[in-house]
Amino acid sequence: MKKIILLAVLVASGAKAQTAYHHDKHEDADIPDHVMDHEKLFTMGKLDQLEVREEDSDALKGDLWFGGNRDKLWLKGEWEREDGETENAELQALYSRAVAPFWDLQMGLRHDFRLEDGPSKNWAAIGFQGLAPYFFEVDAALFVGEGGDSAMRLEAEYELLFTQRLILSPEIELDFYGQNDPATNTGSGLSDMEAGLRLRYEITRQFAPYIGVHYEKKFGEAASFARADAESVSDTTWVIGLRAWF
């Protein structure tokens, strides 16, 4: 396990070193001196969801990447608060490499932050992110955790344009686990599903407030754990939020 993590870290840092080398050539220049002899590196930060939900809940989901056409260092973060308590917080640090016209191979580490009763947890992560036919944005990843735990996550998102600025975006996320873990309220097999429908208005491309509805459901053992804690197994909430990037 440690070897996998070490490998992932090495690959990620190697990619970073490589991209940093290109960058140094024009460190202090905001415009490359000649356009043709190198690749310009960019940084993109994206707040996919920054939202307030009903029942004293909030959520934050975003990405930050740095790199060039093929190689990027990619951070993904997620944080959810329900009924005033942090329910879930994680950060992934990935090396991303373009391997097909519409697909990136991503690998690295995922860290689940320690919550009030549970432990923190590290995972090695490997996955594909990209654009599937029919314009579905897909992120599929496998995780191998300390002690041999395993997990899989599938995310898909679509965009439906009512106008050039009013955009409805359905999305779904499925979390699978290889084991039952009462500490994190996750169960073997399909454990959690989240689905959302968000209607945003792009005031500019980079700044779009939205309203929407968010649905969560737990399955199998995960549902049993929730019932044992007297928590709801499924939940539907209205959300209001902001999508923005730079």
């Binding site: 310009k40 960019f42 993109m44 439906l160 344009l161 009512f162 106008t163 050039q164 491309r205 990037w245």
Partner: peptide, 24 residues
């Protein structure tokens, strides 16, 4: 600035296209 334009295209290639197909 040209670098802003280039960055927009790299991050969201349809940034300047306001004629994308709609539900209508």
């Amino acid at each position: 600035s040209p670098l802003e334009i280039y960055g927009h295209l790299k991050k969201e290639s349809h940034y300047y296209n306001f004629r994308r197909r709609t539900v209508g």
